[in-house]
């Protein structure tokens, strides 16, 4: 199977038959997952923080780390596979953004990541068709080229589809 594994701050896309894009242990990070139903391409970005203005050097070095830079880069990557470069018609799903129990505003990075991604999706006229976000558990997520399915799993909680 052709497989793209993403670390934190990585993004990638594929339309290779039998392929998938996967990222492990999201924690408070969020995976924005895109699929183009016209050409079957799928893509994902593993975002760790909402806003790149916090550290410009890191933003240049690893832009996918941040919601504001990672999402446009993923849309560009999808465009490289033949999808529209304005993101039109892409199907979006969001996974991750968990938090510790009894978190306060400071520690709720997961929620801020989800909100930031939604804000930047809106700029493209996009919104999530489905999401599996929040809660107190870390998720591993895969998106499959052939079926377009988004499958989440978590130690002790099993596997489910979003």
């Amino acid at each position: 199977m052709s497989e793209i594994i993403l670390g934190i701050g990585d993004y990638g896309a594929s339309k290779t038959p039998g392929g998938r894009v996967k990222t492990f242990a999201l924690g408070s990070c969020v995976a924005a997952i895109l699929r183009d139903p016209r050409n079957g391409a799928v893509g994902m970005v593993h975002v760790a923080l909402p806003d790149s203005s916090i550290n410009e050097a890191k933003a240049r070095q690893r832009p996918g780390y941040f919601a504001d830079l990672g999402l446009p880069l993923l849309i560009q990557e999808m465009a490289r596979l033949g999808s529209p470069d304005n993101g039109r018609g892409l199907v979006v799903k969001l996974v991750g953004g968990a938090s510790i129990m009894d978190h306060n505003e400071t520690f709720n990075i997961g929620k801020r990541n989800v909100l930031a991604l939604k804000k930047h999706l809106w700029a493209y006229g996009l919104g999530p068709l489905a999401e599996d976000v929040g809660g107190n558990y870390s998720r591993t997520v895969s998106v499959f080229v052939d079926s377009g399915k988004v499958v989440v799993n978590c130690p002790g909680r099993g596997e489910w589809e979003v």
Binding site: L26, G27, S28
Partner: peptide, 9 residues
């Protein structure tokens, strides 16, 4: 744990 670097369940 928030960074996804936990010990499991």
């Amino acid at each position: 744990m928030m960074a996804g670097c936990d010990t499991g369940s």
